[in-house]
């Protein structure tokens, strides 16, 4: 299986940054591309939900939430016991790895579709469901009896941050409107790959610029940023198999399990755990795990799932 063409733009962004060649995106374009991807993925999943909603979906959704609760519990002891990170930093990084990356999911969805592999079209629902539980577990792991947590403010950031809001909002609009979204689809569907390519160009640049920060945190976080995706992918694939998902569904759930959040969780953690080292989590998820998944992980999961299914 070859790398998808959009990954080429990610590599271009990385190489350009490493060579210090200027690729200057207009201010605000990166944020606009993020908004587009969140709404497009939510809308697509919502339209699928409109015609696929069933009792089985509830069981699958419950299992997915359970998956989101388990992942940070696996990540935390590795960071705390093996890496010697503080309790708050370990909990914060664990929350990032329990949650998911919409951009990684978009790349996996593109790869699956490009190879003509079928998947459950309501998968964006699982993306939305996996965004939140890990944040709650992260806050529980970081709990300090001497420190009061502003629950109202934290809950606001957990459930109403931009990532969750747009993804869930898109899902609900797509579910409610169904086929009436056809008038929007020339924009949100036809332009999806082009927008993803532009987004990945900027992501490659950002990921590459974060690599220097590794010197501050040492190589432990790099090893963790590669091991945890493989553990998450393995568990995700096993869960998808147990839920009797399609081949594409197994690849996508493995990808979701392997991805780490860098939009929704950081926004929540800044408010809920202000003492946590945010750049540690961002470096791990953005500079290590995201490139690993895009360049090595997704092609590998696709081939392995295809080989054994």
């Amino acid at each position: 299986m070859q790398l998808d063409v959009v990954v080429g733009f990610f590599l271009l962004g990385m190489v350009a940054q490493l060579l210090k060649a200027p690729i200057k995106m207009p201010k605000g374009l990166y944020e606009s591309l993020t908004l587009f991807l969140l709404i497009a993925i939510g809308l697509k999943g919502g339209v699928a939900l409109n015609s696929h909603a069933s009792g089985d979906l509830l069981i699958q959704a419950a299992a997915i939430i359970g998956f989101g609760l388990v992942l940070p519990l696996i990540a935390f002891p590795i960071l705390y016991k093996m890496g010697g990170l503080s309790r708050i930093d370990s909990a914060s990084v664990a929350a990032h790895y329990g949650s998911v990356s919409v951009a990684t999911f978009a790349v996996a969805m593109t790869v699956v579709e490009a190879n003509g592999i079928e998947y459950e079209p309501y998968f964006p629902l699982f993306v939305a469901l996996l965004e939140v539980p890990a944040i709650a577990v992260g806050l529980w792991l970081a709990r300090d009896r001497n420190q009061e947590l502003d629950l109202k403010k934290a809950a606001h950031e957990i459930f109403l941050n931009q990532g969750v809001l747009l993804l869930v909002g898109g899902l609900l609009i797509g579910w409610w409107a169904g086929a009436r979204t056809d008038s929007l689809m020339p924009f949100f569907s036809s332009l999806f790959h082009g927008v993803l390519a532009l987004f990945l160009l900027e992501m490659g640049r950002i990921a590459s610029s974060q690599l220097g920060v590794l010197r501050n945190f040492g190589s432990f976080i790099a090893s963790f940023g590669v091991l945890m995706p493989l553990v998450g992918a393995g568990l995700g694939a096993l869960l998808a198999h147990a839920l009797e998902l399609s081949t594409g569904g197994v690849i996508l759930l493995a990808t979701l399990g392997s991805s780490a959040s860098y939009i929704a969780v950081p926004a929540a953690m800044v408010v809920a755990l202000p003492k946590a080292n945010q750049s540690l989590s961002i470096t791990a998820s953005l500079a290590i795990t995201f490139p690993f998944n895009v360049l090595v992980g997704i092609p590998l999961y696709s081939v392995l799932v295809g080989h054994w299914s």
């Binding site: 590795i78 093996m82 010697g84 040492g218 190589s219 432990f220 963790f224 590669v226 091991l227």
Partner: peptide, 12 residues
């Protein structure tokens, strides 16, 4: 702790 982290990195 540093030895443990190094052992983890090598194991990975």
């Amino acid at each position: 702790m540093k030895k443990r982290a190094f052992a983890f990195e090598m194991a990975v």
